[in-house]
Structure formats: C-alpha cells, structure tokens
Design a protein around this nucleic acid. Structure first.
Lengths: 182, 182
DNA sequence: AGCGCTATGTAGCACTCGCTACAAGAGGAA
DNA sequence: TTCCTCTTGTAGCGAGTGCTACATAGCGCT
C-alpha cells in the first residue's frame, strides 16, 4: 500500500508546504525530509544536492503562485485603477496569502544576494504578476501597459512598507497618488 | 599597545562591516569574531548571546544608515518631484550603497518573519528615510507630507523590482506615473 | 601583600549541517 | 535461477553551531 513511489514530483508539494511556513533561511535537509515523510538521504538521492532541491522547489512555488493568481481572476474587470489596486491588495491580505508574502521576502533577499535559483524565481513571479495586472487594468485605460507597471511599483512598495510596519505610510502614499485603496 | 579594550562599541563597527558584505543570514559567531579580531567566546561575553548581539548590531547599522542619509543632504532642494526621485535613486545606486541595499532585504525578510530586532531596525530606517524625503520635497509642493509618502512607496517598489531583475518594469512605472527618473 | 573584579584564552559539549559509504530488498531481464 | 538496476535504510563523517566550564593574567583597592 504505502508510499506510492517517491519522486521529485511527489515530494515537492510537501517540501513547499514546509518552507511556506518555516521559511527558506533555516530550511535544512532533515526537517524538510521529515515534513515530506522521508529522510535527508532520500532528498539527496532524488535531487542530487541541496542547491538543486531549493532551485526546483522555488520553481514549484513559482507555479503555485502563478496558479493562485489565475484562480483569483475576477469575472469582470475593475472599473478604475484604484479599484484595481484595492483588489490586488485585498488578494494579498487573504490569510492563505500571508505565508506566500512572508516567504516572498526570503526570496527577494536571496535574489539580491545572488543565490542560485532565487533571482529566476523572483523574476518569474513578478512577470506573472505584471501580466495578471495588465489583464486587470480597467477597460479604456489610456495607458494600460504603463499604468500596470506604475500600479505594480506602488503595490510592491506598499507590500514592503507593510512588511516592516509602515502600512500607514504606504496607504497615505496611495492616497496622495490618487489611489485610495477604498 | 595592543587592542584598546574591547567593548560593544569598539566591536560593532567591525561586526557591521562583516554583515554588510556577508549578510545576516549566515552570520555566525566564529566568523563574526574573526572579522572583529576576537573570539566567539568574547562576543558572548560582551553581548550575552547571539540574539542581543544581532539586535544591537541592527541598531548600530540603523545609525550608519541614518548618518549616510544625513551626509547625502544636498545643499539646495530639488525643484520637482521627479528630480527628487531621481536624486534618491541616484543615491541608492552609488557603489557604497550597494552593500546596504543587499543587506536591507535580509532585514526586511527578518522583519516579515518576526525575528527579534529586525522589525524595529527596519521601521527606524524607513522612518528616517521618510523624514529625509520630506525634507527633500520641492519647495511649494502642494502636498509635501502625502507626496513624500507616495514617492517613498514608489521608490521602495522600484528598489524591490530592481533587486529581482525587474528594473525596467519599475522605470516604466515611474515614467507612467509622471516621474521619469531623468 | 592579599583580595576581588574584569577581561581573556583554551577546551570542550551537545547538537546540527550537507553529504556519503555500505548494505539490502524489490522487481525485471536473461 | 542469476544478474542488474532502482530505491531505500542505517550509520557515520567532518565541519560548523551557540554556548559554557575552567583557568589565568592584570589591575585597583585596602
């Protein structure tokens, strides 16, 4: 009966769940293995070494994030830019998104420091989010492409300020930018 | 002759230099001690434990950052908001600021995950930067307080996107927001 | 001189880290 | 059967982790 043949594919979901709640910084083989119901020995067997494990894991998490964005596609598009911002910020404040957000800063830190795999993952996530945002821009917006990039920049700034306890600063910034997040 | 009495104060500069180039993630006592010309034994002696060492170190680095901002105060204020943004982005792209920026994402990640000391440090740095920015707002700006917060949000978003290789996205966003960084 | 306090060195502990050597079971191929 | 490959378990290695026990040198105070 028992474990239907372990492989990278069957392991990744459990590994992702673990880093989503424990972070990437302290992720080490034995706890990861335990979370996946196996041993460090087998993680190395399946992935070769920790570095590729993390890289593949980041790729898998990128896919998770992408899927979450797709699932969050509303049926009708927002009417205004501020409604657009409000919607994506609301998306980010959902409880199931919290783990993603916290992990995100681990990924950014790794990308800034040049860790293998981090930059690619971060870049992919941002590209996905940008595409999503472009699709969410109000119909008839004078500059959807540029507008999406402006909103993107504001949103990322807001998320970062929120992460360090400067939520008010960000919200007042949005307000002054004509984007009251309703 | 030799080492003029070690203490927290004399140790912190060397410790800060070390984490500025090596990061906070992998910072462990022996390498830190070596960088400061001491032993792990003495670091514990002077700081009690690693956690307080890191906290005090973050406080010290906050001071460094604050001083760097003060030193970057131009004699005359920018004429427009975009000049203001351009100036602070130019400040951030100076080579001596790179180490700060990379370390910054470590701090944000730690703050997001609730590590002791990280959030306070990050918050203090953002407060300082906000104050600095307010002082840099163009004379006669219709809404200096709100404007500073908006620029702040845009700037932090820009820095984050740059950190993960989406510099273009951010610059086009600034452009679409009427803030071409010259 | 004797005492006590502060600063430091040397060793070491118990633990975790990534990774490996070695053996063994399972299943298919000959 | 015999062999071979794939997968897994057990045990361990060498290095690094935060931290501590113990000894000791130097200094000022009485």
């Amino acid at each position: 009966m028992s474990p239907a043949q372990l492989s990278r594919e069957t392991l990744l979901p459990a590994l992702a769940a673990h880093v989503l709640e424990q972070g990437l910084g302290g992720a080490s083989l034995r706890p990861l293995a335990k979370a996946a119901g196996t041993s460090d020995r087998m993680l190395i067997y399946h992935f070769g070494n920790k570095e590729t494990l993390i890289s593949e894991l980041l790729g898998y998490i990128t896919g998770l994030y992408s899927g979450a964005l797709d699932a969050a596609l509303g049926s009708e598009r927002p009417k205004t830019r501020q409604e657009c911002v409000a919607r994506i910020l609301a998306e980010g404040s959902k409880p199931e998104m919290q783990a993603f957000l916290v992990l995100w800063w681990d990924i950014v830190a790794g990308a800034a420091r040049g860790f293998p795999g981090y930059r690619e993952a971060a870049q992919a996530m941002m590209t996905k989010q940008l595409t999503w945002l472009e699709g969410q821009m109000p119909e008839g917006d004078p500059d959807p492409a540029g507008g999406a990039r402006m909103l993107m920049t504001m949103i990322e700034g807001t998320l970062m300020l929120s992460a360090v306890g400067h939520t008010d600063t960000a919200l007042q910034g949005l307000l002054a930018g004509g984007l009251p997040p309703t």
